[in-house]
Design a binder for these strands. Structure first.
Lengths: 152, 152
DNA sequence: TTCATTGCAAATTATTTGCATTTGA
DNA sequence: TCAAATGCAAATAATTTGCAATGAA
């Protein structure tokens, strides 16, 4: 069962309807799976082929997908709210938000790494806090920006 | 030199003025150093004793403190923007944002931990990205909420 | 058919800005 | 004195909501 089928099943199971608009939002997020998209970005891409989809619908759909935990909300430090396809679609294994954020060009690089498990275990013990999920951002400079700065 | 003196010196050095309002914002952040405050929270606290300080001034001051890197902006996943006293005031050592966020009661617990250094080194090598700072959030349930849920 | 969903426009919320007035150095 | 800072109100930006029309089951 591919993502779209999975999504349709989930939607129906909730007693909701599978609409063109919902599929479009999902499609856009799927095809930009490597980036982090603001609602306006999603809206603009949908508009190209479907000019009469409303912005409010995109907001509502994003909200819905978020509640269904199919997408994740990301706050980078530029103040913009962005979204990306969530982990449930990646086979349901444990979720990780790992981002390298360049403070010069604002590029965001995602990476996968599971070295935090030991730390989590330690924290669960010392803080008596059950950890379900984590989000880790490193701020610094990407190689392109380091190179440019050196060249000055 | 205490924080306030340090702040006055920095402000003057920039050719800016030490005003009552700026001191008030700093004071509020200092006395709530354990929490993360929204601009409105800061404004409300200041208002109690100084009813004619304007909200716009608080926004402007927070902006200024942020640029001076004296405070840090935090995005929790409830969509609210909050601020806390930054690391420069803690002696200038390397900055860490470590938060445990309870998904049930939204309580935020801060913790200090430097186990990420090895991971940073590895990433600097494999991704060719220079890391200046990081931010780590663990989402889960705090002990109080675990207890309450068990008691149901 | 029937109720969820949509598009639109208006409302709301958070934040910023223009400007006349005030104030710190 | 005099530019920087302030308070207020108006402007802007992001998001949400009310409602009549539309569309999926």
């Amino acid at each position: 069962m591919d993502r779209q089928e999975q999504f349709k099943a989930l939607i129906k199971h909730k007693g909701l309807k599978v609409t063109q608009q919902r599929l479009l939002v999902l499609e856009v997020l799927e095809s930009h799976h490597d980036t982090h998209m603001a609602v306006e970005d999603i809206y603009d891409l949908i508009r190209k082929d479907h000019p009469d989809v409303g912005l409010a619908t995109v907001y509502r759909t994003v909200q819905l997908l978020l509640e269904m935990q199919l997408i994740d909300r990301i706050y980078l430090n530029d103040g913009c709210v962005r979204y990306e396809l969530g982990h449930l679609f990646d086979g349901g294994h444990k979720h990780n938000h790992h981002h390298l954020i360049c403070k010069t060009c604002n590029k965001v690089i995602s990476f996968k790494e599971d070295l935090l498990e030991r730390l989590e275990q330690q924290i669960e013990k010392t803080e008596a806090f059950r950890i379900d999920d984590h989000e880790l951002k490193f701020y610094g400079q990407c190689k392109e920006c380091i190179r440019k700065e050196d060249g000055k």
